[in-house]
Design a binder for these strands. Structure first.
Lengths: 230, 230
DNA sequence: CAACCGTCAAGAGCGGTGCTCTCGGTTTTG
DNA sequence: CAAAACCGAGAGCACCGCTCTTGACGGTTG
């Protein structure tokens, strides 16, 4: 397997080229991109694509994985670039980074967070990169608690079954994070997703010309709910 | 035009039958339902469908309109059935009604709130019924303010451009509602959409077996943010 | 009563889709 | 150098939305 580097290289290049063209088609055709159209753009015949991707769904999966990584990178980079002690600044930075990426790549965002493609079932390999953005967001709460800048809500506000469920999530991703705080962090993530989706998919935009400021205010409301200090 | 009532009746029945079968297909095929398959189920030839719907998109539009009305009816009925003075009870009732309808009709929900169908552009006739659910939800705040059970947040927490945008929305749908309260109400609506979408589309469900309790707690958090009395 | 004309289902056909299989030609490998 | 692996092209299958034409049916009207 060491000697076939040339073949492997040109093959990898071809795979990248296919993905690149497919990504371009994604912007216009949405989730129902056409293998034949991609092949046409590459000057190939449709059946040749099957040498590189066993099916259209596998090509979609590759694009989804890349999109998750790109979003995760953008979000984590925004968090890393902010002042680690400025919790609210980090919160807004992460939210804005997710929104910016979504606005710059609406088709990819729709692929990740839109209604699922009818016949398509996302493989398990996508579950791990999908959790990077929310983990980054809620990670701010973990850091804030460790720094003493955040006081957890009363634990008894959670019904027992919810607390138990959240305890498992906390054990896996945020050891030591109180469940009630995790619940609020997940509310923030849900809100972030809702805001971006409404802006991208919905028609509410007409009535809200100042979308940047509205977005910041709404994410700020969630920061208030969490208790992030001003 | 008075005498052809028989023709009109059988025609209306046919339209209903087509929509019914299409709705059934929607559950399995999602947004890309097939006219030919619908025609097959009806024992017709595909071209016959075009006597009743000028295109596939028009059939989709009809289904979307029906779905909006069904959701709006469910939400408004839940609000009307609750004690008008129990703001928190109404809030939870409306949220639960929306979620229940979505869980019972996931394909229709995806059609309404999922990623838009690539080539499809929703006509303007859908914009009015689309606003019934959020208007119902935020209407609880209007009633609460009128009853003196709700104190509006400080008005200066809103940046001026956002306040101006929200003022126009308030003038159109909730005259007299303070902008800061409207902002919180819209945050609740965004959260509701995010919660339902995550449950329907996402894979977070695995880690949260107690979805009913989680949903209630998350919507309760938003009620807290709004200031709805316990 | 009969002619008429709108409505309807059916069929053929166009260009498109994902996908499979076979066939040659090239490249890498043993 | 021969064998094996790889690759692109092409034909073909079944499906799709949509258009156009044809023939039959049946209320409306002269």
């Amino acid at each position: 397997m060491v000697a076939n580097t040339f073949r492997a290289r040109v093959r990898a290049g071809m795979i990248e080229e296919i993905k690149s063209v497919a990504r371009r088609h994604l912007a216009t055709d949405g989730a129902n991109l056409s293998l034949r159209a991609v092949a046409r753009d590459l000057g190939m015949v449709s059946s040749a694509i099957y040498r590189y991707f066993p099916s259209r769904d596998d090509l979609l999966t590759a694009l989804i994985l890349e999109a998750y990584e790109a979003l995760g990178d953008a979000v984590e980079a925004a968090d890393a670039a902010a002042d680690p002690a400025d919790l609210r600044g980090r919160w807004h930075a992460v939210c804005r980074a997710a929104r910016s990426w979504a606005l710059a790549h609406p088709a990819e965002y729709a692929l990740l967070y839109g209604s699922p493609v009818p016949g398509y079932a996302a493989p398990d390999t996508t579950v791990e990169p999908a959790q990077r953005p929310p983990v980054t967001l809620v990670g701010i709460l973990r850091d804030g608690l460790a720094a003493g800048q955040l006081t957890p809500p009363p634990a008894d506000e959670l019904p027992e079954p919810v607390r138990a469920d959240l305890a498992e999530i906390a054990a896996a991703y945020f050891p030591g994070l109180p469940e009630a705080l995790l619940a609020r962090g997940m509310a923030g993530w849900t809100q972030l997703f809702g805001l971006i989706s409404f802006e991208l998919f919905g028609r509410i935009n007409r009535a809200l010309p100042h979308r940047d400021e509205y977005f910041d205010h709404q994410t700020g409301l969630m920061a208030d709910l969490i208790g992030l200090p001003h």
